[in-house]
Every structure is written in C-alpha cells, then in structure tokens.
Amino acid sequence: MSLQVVTANRLDDGLVVFLTADGGWSENIDQSRIADGKEAGDALLAEASVPELDTVIVGPYLIEVEQQDDGLVPTKYREVLRTKGPSVRQDLGYQAG
C-alpha cells in the first residue's frame, strides 16, 4: 500500500505546491488530497495534468508520502527538501515559517 500526493511548481512564482482536496493548490503538504494505491494515484495525476492547469502550475507529478505524527512526510529525501527548503539555509523556504 502506498500513499501518494500530487506536487508541482506554481507557474507565476515557481514555488512548490500540492493538489488539495478541493482541486486547488496549497503550499502546505498537509492539505494535500491523498491517493491510496496505484489506480487512485494515476487518477489524481490525470486530474492534475489537464491542459487547463497549464496556466496555474508546471510539471505535476506523484510523490509517495507517509502519514507521521506531525503530518505527511515524503518518503524520498529530495521531496522532503521540497516541502521544507534548502537544508543549508534553514532561514529560507517553507521551513522558515
């Protein structure tokens, strides 16, 4: 069983965003709509890849996540960095709060 969410970069400012339950895009991974399993993941990605969204976001793709005590955490370190910001500049990115 694998949990997945869709991430992308927002077109105008380039920042990392996640597809939310209401079809919008949030900077907070915890507001993501979660797909469980391959089929649901593919459906979610298809929803995020419609041409109309080409003026909203760039390059949507699925990432695997785990539900941890403090929220959703990507399984890959690369994606953890995207949800937080550069590890060498903790004053920048979403981790800066």
Partner: peptide, 10 residues
C-alpha cells in the same frame, strides 16, 4: 534567457 525551474522555485 537563463530561467530554470529548480527544486524550490525558478
């Protein structure tokens, strides 16, 4: 024109 899309932003 030198504009990339990187991990966190352009």
């Amino acid at each position: 024109n030198g504009v990339y899309l990187q991990l966190h932003a352009y």
